[in-house]
Design a protein around this nucleic acid. Sequence first.
DNA 1: TGATCCGGCAGAGCGGTGCTCTTGAGTTCG
DNA 2: CGAACTCAAGAGCACCGCTCTGCCGGATCA
Lengths: 235, 235
Amino acid sequence: MNASRTARERVRAELTREIADTARRHLATEGAAGLSLRAVAREMGMVSSAVYRYFPSRDDLLTALIIDGYNAIGAAAEEADSACRRDDYPARWLAACRALRAWALAHPHEYALVYGSPVPGYRAPEQTIGPASRVAAVLGRIISDAQAAGVLDPPGLGVAMPREFAADVGRLRESVLPGAPDDAVARALAAWAGTFGMVSFELFGQFENVVTDRDAYYDYAVTCMGRVIGLRAGA
Amino acid sequence: MNASRTARERVRAELTREIADTARRHLATEGAAGLSLRAVAREMGMVSSAVYRYFPSRDDLLTALIIDGYNAIGAAAEEADSACRRDDYPARWLAACRALRAWALAHPHEYALVYGSPVPGYRAPEQTIGPASRVAAVLGRIISDAQAAGVLDPPGLGVAMPREFAADVGRLRESVLPGAPDDAVARALAAWAGTFGMVSFELFGQFENVVTDRDAYYDYAVTCMGRVIGLRAGA
DNA sequence: TGATCCGGCAGAGCGGTGCTCTTGAGTTCG
DNA sequence: CGAACTCAAGAGCACCGCTCTGCCGGATCA
């Protein structure tokens, strides 16, 4: 009984995955708003109503793709980081940021689905918050490692961190930035948002007629951000 | 003949504007993908095909709304800047950035349409690049003014600007950052992208369960960015 | 083994969409 | 006045998300 049920569930899981894969291919070519449940069903030789057995609605399909996207970009960052010498913190930072952007450029529609404007009426469910933090975890760990090694050396800016931010800093330190000082947490958060802001600007067309050599400029900008947090080359 | 033709064109322009206004109201409540040309026509008492006399396609309507959005957010930044003492550059920077975010929070769907993921298949036409640069012009002018006053004092980061970026710097200096040194141009560009990245992250849900007091944190982050460019309080 | 249950698929259908084409009024102007 | 033109209306096409109703076949159980 258990075996047969798992057999049924196995084929169900397989079909679910196949639908998601087909949808992801459509997403890659047509974009999120062009993703049609009917087209996915058509390509799989099913009728549209059959797909509803696996995904209750189009939004649920999109949610699955969003989770996949978070995991993919997170995995890319993790891999890039782990390929670096552990004690070369600026190199790890640059590599992770580069991987981020490279993934975004290779999967523009998936990136837009994940980090762009949410589709109207769509509300990110709880399941997305776990995978969503993978990238932040990679970036945070680099800072934390540098801090633990005693080489974090942030330039003084003379800007006081707001008191209201103390609780958030505490939570962030526990989850993704263990051991980091308050300033580093606050600046890392801005760098996190800033890095994605740069990628989004490039991908969404704001750099058109503004930045031509985007590889070079991106490297420069994220290096600056890392430097502001305290990552220093050759330390 | 000229009078009568302008009369016709006047009523035509008026109707065009009315359609755009109705569409903007729908956009504000439903979001970009929920904007239905038929619904707009319905509310105006026309039939859907009549709207096509004024906007050849739904994308053209969206383009008009995008241009309006750029102008609105640009105007908000300009107004906030002009309300400050001309020689208090950090205050002007903070005010402009605050106005940016305030406008985005007040018009989330319009902001998403303008700075979010472009709707699939949509290509930003030339007419958008002018209004798009209004915000950049405001931010750039603050930096330029500070430079002209001789109070721009950027902290040394020891990060060399890439040579490939020289041409872009030249173009940016001419258009929005007159008189600014290379470093300031490069850093200002990153701050520009970073500021919008922060607003987008907040609006698109990435700060959920991460930042609670977003007013305070935003002020802190944009102040830091201004400081990195060289804006210094009390200078 | 035979009856029963149930997951899954197909099809029809509803109300909605963007967009096109034709048709018929109303206006402008030679 | 009649011609040229503008514009609104309506019908219609192909598509969409989603629901409901049947039917089939394999798993479950008496």
